[in-house]
Every structure is written in C-alpha cells, then in structure tokens.
Design a protein around this nucleic acid. Sequence first.
DNA 1: TAGACGTGGCC
DNA 2: TGGCCAAGTCT
Length: 367
Amino acid sequence: MVYEEKNKLKSFPIQAFQQDLIHWYLAEKRDLPWRKDQDPYKVWVSEIMLQQTRVDTVIPYFTSFINKFPTIDALADANEEEVLKAWEGLGYYSRVRNLQAAVKEVKESYGGVVPKSPEEISKLKGVGPYTKGAILSIAYNIPEPAVDGNVMRVLSRILSIWEDIAKPKTRKIFEDITYELISKDDPSSFNQALMELGALICTPTSPSCLLCPVREHCSAFEEGVQTELPIKSKKKKPKPLQITAAVLYDANGNVYIHKRPSTGLLANLWEHPNVEVNAEVGKPYREQLSDYLQSEYHAKVELSELAGTVEHIFSHLIWNISIYFGELKNTPNQMLVSLTEEELNKYAFPVSHQKIYQIFKGSALNV
DNA sequence: TAGACGTGGCC
DNA sequence: TGGCCAAGTCT
C-alpha cells in the first residue's frame, strides 16, 4: 500500500532524522516514574493511564497504583472495588476494568509474561494499535509504530501531511510512515522521542521551532505553516441534561448510595441516587426526584430545598445537577446501600458525586 | 464510521 | 468564558 505521503520519504533523510531526534531525546527526556525501568507491566499501566490524560495528572496515580499493585499477579488477584478506587478521578474507567481483565488473561494464558507478538498482545482487552506499539517498542525494543496524537502532529508537520488527524483512517497513514522512519537500533527511544518532542517542543498551538532538534528536516517549518498543521476537524458540543440528585441519610448518620451498571457511562462506580428531570413534566424538580426515589427504591423521604448545584462536563454530555438532602423515613430496597462515612471511603465515585457529598458535609443541615 | 467514554488545565 | 484539549479504545 503506497500513499502519496509515503513518496515524500524517498527524499527524506531518515538516518539523520533518527539520529538528531534520538540524540535530543537522550539528553532532554523528562525523568518520569515509568521510565525507571523497562518492566512491561509498568510500561503497560503507564500507557493505559496516559491515554487522553496529561502526564502531570498521571504521575501521582501511577505511583500509588504501582505501590498497591506492583506486579501482574498483584493486579490480577486484587479486589475489583479496590482497583476501581485506585482509578477514582482519572476518568475513562473502562480502561482499568479492561486492564485488570487483560492482566488476568496474561497470568492465565501467558504464564504472567506480557506477550511479545503484535498479534497476541493486540488480543488483550484495552490494547489497541497505539498501546500495542508502545509496549512492544518501549518494553521489548521491537520496531513497531506507536502512533498517538503527538506523533500525528509531529509527523504531519515534518512531512507536511494535510490529512485530517481526527479521522480514524488517518492513523494508518502515519503507521505506514513510522514503519519506514523508525530506528531499528533503538525503536524504544525513537518512539518515545517522537512523543516527547510533541509534548515539549512541537506543541499544538505555539511550537518552539527554534529549539527543535529536527527543524532542519521539517517541511512545515520551511514553508512557515507549522501552526496550520495538523488538520483536525471539530468535535461536537456536549449535550446538556438536567439531573437531580439526593443525599439520603438516616437517623444514625448512614448515607445511602447506589452502584451504577457494569456497562456504559461511569460503569461500576457508586453515586448518590439521581434521575434526569425536565421542565415539561410540569412538576417541580424536587417532586420529580421524590417520585423517582419512591418508585425506584421505595424510599420515603421529605427532601430539603435546593441545597446546591454541580456541573459535570463530559466529552459528550453536560450534567447540570440540582442537589437535595433527605432523611429517610423507612428502609429502602436493596438497590440502595447503607454506609457509614468511613465505609464510604472504600468506594469509588465519579468526581461530580464527590462534589455532591462535599456540599452535604459542608451544609448547616448536616449538624 | 461516528459516537461513547472522564477529567482538569490552559488561554 | 468556552473551546480545545492529553501518550486511545470499543462498539
């Protein structure tokens, strides 16, 4: 398969590019916790955490996650609730469910050793084309491309590629190019260098071209179009939803929470009981919530006045959450779990529901 | 393929 | 302030 873009490589100084890039990387690379060794498990955990997530955010999560689950066996045998708790606040929670499932698979089918073949490693849950290449190259020094957003941005500038990097099929173009460009002597440093360059120098909005170790090989810099690239089509705006949530408690000070379904949004996380409402029903939101608590949980409760609001922005949704408090007058059904404040700390909540509980704790109603 | 899937930071 | 993210994967 030959793309027009691949023809650009015929006159491209591949060796000099590799040398300049890797030389810069070895001198300037950041001292990150997942770079202390090449343990395939730690590389794997770091790559999953780094998906769509900033390095500064990941560092503390990575450190504590590896402390709690230092090996494949430790994670495979760990309690699911504890694993989810360790991911609390990181987002994209299916990442950690897939990671634990995949680690179990490695323990059972591969003797606890992360497979080295692209075919086998790709079968693991949560390991897509990027993560496959990242683990194989970084941990095992195998020359596989690891094409992420950084790599597409950097290479689109270096080679003046005007394809839309938001389109899924575009990634394949960059993979084909990377197979040609990648250093066969040090694929680990090469792949990481490309990403490091994207993170530190060849940044999205104002790239530091004058500090760039490969600017003499950069087509976009030569043409002065580095800020025009890459081409990236716009995302849709998230859809707003009106949500009501209740912090339910009893005379003993226990709080009643609900576990979300095992699939979909915020899967397996816990939350304060809540429901989507709308103005067209003709009832006040507080009454719509009260009706819902009665029918869904058989919970009898006199709700407070509006206690506060929390906005929670997802990639595709916005929750505008109105918060009410209520002391239970009866024992609700088993869909609602009663917990002491101390027990609450063992369960993983989405950030929006952490905020809801903080409003409850900070309220005068709670004394 | 396009949409689902989180969160916090930045300008 | 709102848009755009940041080392993607799954369906």
